[in-house]
């Protein structure tokens, strides 16, 4: 079964309700031939389990790594990946595109 964006938000909710630390990554901007459209999601838990995709495999590893920090400190981050970006990130998109990914924590209701 292919995971869809709709499954991913349900998964994010289920994981958070089960008490797992959860981060949600969303593609917010793309340039060039980016593999996944704006709005694509990746859900990540504190153990590094993930579902969905933001790039079709090129940068998921880096997003999952950063998600651990987001879950740790509870602060959202904006990540940028692409061939033109060689400063903070060593991961490029093989297609030559560029993407911006917003990674945010899912806060359990108790902390509201």
């Amino acid at each position: 079964m292919i995971t869809t964006d709709t499954d991913i938000l349900s998964t994010a909710e289920a994981w958070a309700r089960a008490g797992r630390g959860v981060a949600l990554a969303t593609v917010v901007e793309t340039w060039g031939s980016a593999p996944r459209p704006v709005g694509s999601h990746l859900v990540i838990d504190a153990e590094g389990n993930f579902q969905g995709s933001v790039s079709g495999g090129c940068v998921e590893g880096a997003v999952v790594e950063e998600a651990a920090e987001v879950i740790g400190d509870g602060k959202a981050r904006m990540l940028e990946f692409g061939v033109a970006d060689d400063t903070a990130w060593k991961v490029g998109l093989s297609c030559g595109g560029r993407i911006k990914v917003y990674v945010e924590p899912v806060r359990p209701e108790e902390n509201n």
Binding site: L9, E13, R17, V28, A76, E109
Partner: peptide
């Protein structure tokens, strides 16, 4: 994202009603 907002998004989707999540890039509100 508050779990309550995520749950509301999933509920709207299950009920086949359109909804839009607004996120301020600066500050994340």
């Amino acid at each position: 994202m508050d779990l309550a907002i995520l749950a509301a998004m999933n509920a709207e989707r299950a009920a086949r009603r359109p909804a839009v999540l607004v996120t301020a890039i600066e500050g994340g509100a």
